[in-house]
Lab assay of single mutants.
Amino acid sequence: MTGIVKWFNADKGFGFITPDDGSKDVFVHFSAIQNDGYKSLDEGQKVSFTIESGAKGPAAGNVTSL
């Protein structure tokens, strides 16, 4: 699925993605970002991701920028 990064705190390594389908915002951890180098996201960035079952509920996985 796709969405827009609502916010991401690079110091803490997590944030939230707002899915394009209008569903509830999804937690994203830096370890789910699939790019080389520094793993961070920018507010407003368009991303593709999967929904994984995290310890505290749904979380984004396999996050790639579009």
Results as ranks from 00 to 15, higher is better:
M1Q: 11
M1P: 05
M1E: 05
M1A: 08
M1S: 08
M1T: 09
T2K: 07
T2Q: 08
T2P: 04
T2R: 08
G3T: 00
G3Q: 00
I4M: 09
I4Y: 11
I4N: 06
I4Q: 08
I4R: 12
V5T: 03
V5C: 05
V5I: 08
V5P: 01
K6R: 12
W7Y: 08
W7A: 03
W7Q: 03
W7D: 02
F8V: 04
F8Q: 01
N9V: 04
N9D: 15
N9Y: 06
N9M: 06
N9W: 11
N9K: 08
A10I: 12
A10V: 12
A10R: 13
A10L: 10
A10Q: 13
A10K: 15
D11H: 14
D11Q: 15
D11R: 14
K12V: 09
G13E: 02
G13Q: 04
G13W: 02
G13I: 01
F14Y: 14
F14H: 05
F14S: 02
F14L: 04
F14G: 01
F14D: 01
G15E: 00
G15M: 02
F16W: 10
F16P: 00
F16T: 03
I17F: 01
I17N: 00
I17E: 00
I17M: 02
T18F: 06
T18Q: 11
T18N: 05
T18C: 15
T18W: 07
T18L: 12
P19D: 02
P19F: 04
P19Q: 03
D20F: 08
D20T: 08
D20Y: 07
D21I: 07
D21E: 06
D21L: 06
D21Q: 06
D21Y: 06
D21W: 07
G22I: 03
G22S: 06
S23H: 07
S23D: 07
S23T: 13
S23F: 06
S23E: 07
K24G: 11
K24N: 12
K24D: 12
K24I: 10
D25V: 05
V26Q: 02
V26S: 01
F27A: 02
F27W: 07
F27M: 03
V28N: 00
V28S: 01
H29F: 08
H29T: 04
F30Q: 09
F30H: 11
F30M: 11
F30W: 15
F30R: 14
S31M: 08
S31E: 05
A32C: 06
I33P: 02
I33W: 06
I33R: 02
I33Y: 04
I33T: 03
Q34W: 07
Q34N: 13
Q34R: 09
Q34F: 09
Q34L: 14
Q34P: 04
N35G: 15
D36Q: 12
D36I: 10
D36L: 11
D36C: 15
G37L: 10
Y38H: 12
Y38S: 10
Y38C: 15
Y38L: 12
Y38D: 09
Y38I: 12
K39Q: 10
K39E: 05
K39F: 08
S40W: 14
S40Q: 11
L41R: 01
L41G: 01
D42G: 12
D42I: 15
D42F: 15
D42S: 15
D42W: 14
D42L: 15
E43M: 15
G44C: 09
G44Y: 05
G44F: 05
G44W: 05
Q45I: 08
K46S: 08
K46N: 06
K46W: 11
K46L: 11
K46V: 10
K46R: 13
V47K: 00
V47W: 01
F49S: 00
F49L: 04
F49E: 00
T50S: 11
T50A: 06
T50H: 09
I51L: 12
E52C: 11
E52A: 10
S53E: 14
G54T: 15
G54D: 11
G54M: 10
A55M: 12
A55G: 11
A55E: 12
A55P: 14
K56I: 08
K56N: 12
K56Y: 14
K56L: 11
G57W: 08
G57Q: 06
G57A: 06
G57S: 08
P58E: 08
P58C: 09
P58H: 10
P58I: 13
A59Y: 15
A59I: 14
A59N: 10
A59Q: 15
A60G: 04
A60T: 03
G61S: 14
G61A: 15
G61W: 11
N62D: 06
N62V: 08
N62S: 10
V63C: 03
T64D: 05
T64W: 08
T64N: 11
T64L: 13
S65P: 15
S65D: 10
L66C: 09
